[in-house]
Amino acid sequence: MGENMLEVEIAGIKMKTPVIAASGTFGFGLEYTDFIDLNKIGAISVKGTTLKPRAGNSGCRIAETPAGMLNSIGLENPGAEHFLAVTLPKLAAYNVPVIVNISGSTVEEYGELAAMLDVPGVAALEVNISCPNVKHGGLVFGTDCNSAASVTRQIKKSTKKPVIVKLSPNVTDIATMAKAVEEAGADAISLINTLLGMAIDIKSWRPVLGNTVGGLSGPCVKPVAVRMTWQVASAVQVPVIGMGGIMTGQDAIEFLLAGACAVMVGTANFVNPRAMETVAAEIKEYLLARGLKHVSELVGQVRV
């Protein structure tokens, strides 16, 4: 019983569970094969990929904070060509949808990346318009409706793949951003990216992170993420993928009730490399205990 109760389809991406690896926290999936069966997770959103290789930020890149962490990796990655030539063929050995998270510094660059990645083996693109750790692009596109919309349009013109736009929480009104990218053609919306934060070493009086500020993630951001997921899901018609501090199935269920059709698990992968397996199993247990037949019965059912 309950064989298919976790299966979902979002923007044409068929997934065995609604639990997806969040970009930047699961490498390219291959780093985790000793711990978790990639065939059993919903999908993998791979490490943010750019047109050219990036070395990322210098200095200290992570800082632990109460029930969370700050990071300022700065999109270190081997570039799209390397991804296509080396990584994607390796991922073909697994039966799991591969979502490629992309970042550009200009609208044209996003388009170029999207076109390059319009190849078999790529299930969808997730557009990072909200990386807080890079100077050009990233957050700039994520905090301005018009820029976010033009990036989305450019990508939609350049690929036939489903396009998921990942929103930044570092905005005044997230619902307006969501509507802007929906109108520009986004097939789905994922949120939240990390919250801009800062930690200071009181011994040296210096910022802990080499980049001064960084993105906050982990359980501490969950209430903000649930609230934004609810606001966005209430404002748009396209499917919403919720994330932010999910450690357990119970956490994931909050996002589903808020209106997310699927969730992404991020920081939890660092703490427990099998977290996604546990989260999916706990969602299923919850459904069974409540006599529900399918995970979709939870979506958006919060009684406000």
């Binding site: 490498g27 890149r61 992968n269």
Partner: peptide, 16 residues
């Protein structure tokens, strides 16, 4: 180095 994942995924600990 400071690291989060320990398995090569998070890129907190990379060096040149």
């Amino acid at each position: 180095a400071h690291m989060a994942c320990g398995v090569g995924a998070c890129l907190s600990c990379t060096c040149a």
